[in-house]
Write a protein that binds this DNA or RNA. Structure first.
Lengths: 248, 248
DNA sequence: CAGTGGTCTAGACCACCTT
DNA sequence: AGGTGGTCTAGACCACTGC
């Protein structure tokens, strides 16, 4: 990646794509209240001049700001702020758990941890052979003594070597990012509502009357390798998925 | 919009942004099996030459193909096909109902239709005054005699004038697009799991043991006007939300 | 018709992967 | 070192809005 140093006068080296300057400018403007709901923003050329980048780069930044729901663009008219100061945040299923809780309140109980052959389903999703080995993990997330999420996770041992119970007790994603130095790039996921199975009922203290919000997902590294196939089931009290959709 | 005519030799005028040629090329390649899972695609320069567009335009098309989950891009390596022939489709909540059913099998029952003042919540979401008027609509969607979705819809009468029961029986969105000639551009939505209320139970034939998949959404026209605030509740058997998330 | 956003281009250069 | 994708630019031209 090409990087530039902004704020170098402050001796704080911030590495950015230039188009992220645009996104940051808008995010900051919304947070500080400079840009509030419905206001017309500066034009593309003004932004380009102010941030010292080309118009094309501003446009690329606007693409991202728009995809995040910050702004609305009206051809021939201008750019308008769409988000309120109390910014909406996407609850991203990438990390397998909701980020709405402070880390202190959240504990992890490991129900099962083994290395097995993958199920047919898991092998297909992970694009591996049924003779390869995968970690087979079952975890329960507990929020202030209340179990809220049960996770069934499959990861190829070749892709994510060296998993231990200690890692599972903390964050698998931290381990992948900071110990293995791999980058997570994308996920396909599917949200449905399901009834609990026997394990779900046992570990989340549920009955047949209860239900769960299920996310089935395949997660990819930035080299395209699928490294996780997982099924997370959340109790409805703590689940929400928020997003923005834009035409094309 | 700038438009060009492709396939003019066939006397079929297809109006496109050039970058959509790239998206279409990839979609078609996946559908016909020319591009199958894992295959390395032509390079950007090759695509540019083949489709007779600039490299930047190819890149813009790739952005869209990537956001649709068609491809994976690996810097320094190439572009790889990610989607299987039996293409995944996003079940888009924009239309308020799942598009997995043929129109023939789906019927609509209108439970309630009036013009009222908006609730505080609806006024806030629609960015209108509590003294303005809104359509207050309650509909049930019925799939082959089984009620599957109940919808509570609020629309400002100033923005969407002339709604009738006949429109409600068909598609409000068709009416907006083709009769009012307005364009729908984006939506914010929130997916949660809920228990049915009294109306839900009555009209979907549910009990307290049942649950529903709820989408609360605000939908915007391309001029930024919020024109719909709605709560749709789907029975879990027919609900799924599928998507792709990419870093940034 | 002036202003604004959208599309498109050719080309320079950078970052990363592969050999 | 060569190939490939990513970023960035300056500038041309188009489509739309609003005065």
């Amino acid at each position: 990646m090409r990087t530039i140093n902004s704020k170098s006068l402050l001796n704080i080296e911030v590495k950015f794509m230039k188009y992220m300057l645009v996104v940051e400018h808008i995010r900051e403007g919304i947070e500080t209240g400079k840009y509030s709901y419905g206001i017309k923003m500066p034009t593309i050329n003004e932004l380009a001049k102010k941030l010292n980048v080309s118009a094309m780069t501003v446009k690329k930044g606007l693409d991202i700001a728009q995809s995040r729901g910050y702004i609305e663009r009206r051809q021939g008219s201008g750019i308008y702020v769409k988000m309120n100061t109390q910014g909406k945040k996407k609850s991203i299923p990438l990390s397998g758990n909701s980020s709405r809780f402070s880390k202190k309140d959240l504990h992890t109980k490991i129900i099962h941890f083994s290395v097995d052959r993958p199920s047919k389903e898991a092998a297909k999703k992970l694009q591996i052979s049924s003779t390869d080995f995968v970690y087979n993990i079952e975890r329960v997330r507990i929020l202030r003594n209340k179990p809220i999420i049960i996770e069934y996770v499959y990861m190829p041992i070749n892709v994510i070597p060296g998993l231990t119970e200690k890692v599972l007790k903390n964050s698998i994603y931290e381990y992948i990012r900071h110990t293995l130095n791999k980058r997570i790039s994308s996920s396909d996921f599917l949200i449905t509502g399901v009834r609990p199975n026997e394990d779900d009922k046992k570990f989340l203290n549920l009955t047949n009357k209860d239900f769960l919000m299920q996310i089935m997902q395949t997660v990819y590294l930035d080299d395209g390798t699928a490294f996780e196939y997982s099924v997370d089931k959340h109790i409805p009290e703590v689940f929400e998925y928020r997003s923005v959709e834009t035409d094309i």
